[in-house]
Every structure is written in C-alpha cells, then in structure tokens.
C-alpha cells in the first residue's frame, strides 16, 4: 500500500532494561502522525506485552510495524523455544516466567490476554524449537 509507513526494530534478548523501547518508539511515531489516543494506547500496550515476552521467554527477536491510515499491523518474531500449548498460554494467570523476572513484577500471566483484549486481531504461529510469530492488528477508528 502506497501510504503505509514501515518500521523495523531488533529486540535484544539480553538487555532487560531496554525492553519496551520499540513499543515506546512506535507510540511516539503514532502520536506524531496524529492517530487517536485510544488506538495509540491499544497499540502500545499490546506491542509492549509481545515485546517483553520475546525478551523474557525467547531471548529477543524483531518487530515489523506497518502503519496504515485505518489500522496498525505488527509482527513480533523470535527464534525462542516456541509455545507448547497456545490455548493454555492464552489463559489469564498461566505463566512459566522464572523467579528472577517475577521479582521484577512479571509473570502474572496477563500479557497474552492483554494483547487479545486490546487488539482487533491476534494470531500466534509457533513451532517448538523454532520460534514464535505473533501478528497483531489494531483498527484505528477515525
């Protein structure tokens, strides 16, 4: 599409302190472009949850963001361990987060449910031992 804006970010799996940077930059970009605040907030929350999951559960990955006038589409891809049971992972409260990140406030098992709640479409492709792709779409209402 001619008027799409494409953004690409690599997400480091080592640097915990930088997690959320890509989501923050996307948020800033959408603000600059004048998108409505509700859509911006939904994109920011959903993308952050997927981004932080790549850091905590998959040693990092990358994000591709496509910004259209009427929607934002995001792919978050990693080469982590994959998700054995996606239905289970989607349940509120289910988490395999290790203790060291739980002390930081992660591990409520609310990340994927948040993504579901705040996006208009969410799709997970995952293969054990190969990695996970999370596709998100947020529709922007004028």
């Amino acid at each position: 599409m001619s008027n799409a804006i494409h953004l690409h970010y690599d997400v480091s799996g080592e640097d915990f302190t930088r997690a959320g940077e890509a989501s923050g930059l996307v948020k800033k970009t959408l603000k600059k472009l004048g998108y409505n605040t509700d859509a911006i907030r939904r994109v920011a929350i959903a993308m952050y949850e997927a981004e932080i999951n790549m850091v905590i559960h998959a040693e990092g990955g990358y994000c591709d963001v496509d910004i259209y006038p009427d929607r934002v589409e995001i792919l978050l891809a990693d080469h982590g361990p994959g998700i054995p049971d996606v239905d289970k992972a989607m349940q509120e409260g289910y988490s395999t987060a290790p203790d060291n990140v739980r002390t930081l406030g992660f591990g409520a098992g609310m990340g994927l449910p948040n993504i579901k709640k705040y996006t208009d479409d969410m799709r997970i492709e995952t293969t054990l031992g190969v990695g996970t792709n999370v596709y998100l779409t947020v529709v922007v209402k004028a």
Binding site: A19, I45, E49, L104, F106, A108, G111, P113, N114, Y118
Partner: peptide
C-alpha cells in the same frame, strides 16, 4: 505490583500506587 496486570487494567490518567520502582515500571 504485577506489571501486566497494571498494564491491562490501569485507567489512563490515574495515579499508580506500587512498590515496583524498577525500570520496567517506567515502561508500563
């Protein structure tokens, strides 16, 4: 204090009361 709980439920423009003073709280 659970970050993704707060992320999903805290209304915008609210005061967030927490004991979590780490860098991830700032992102949230």
């Amino acid at each position: 204090d659970l970050l993704s709980w707060v992320m999903g439920r805290a209304p915008e423009d609210s005061a967030w009361l927490t004991v979590m003073g780490n860098i991830n709280s700032i992102a949230v």
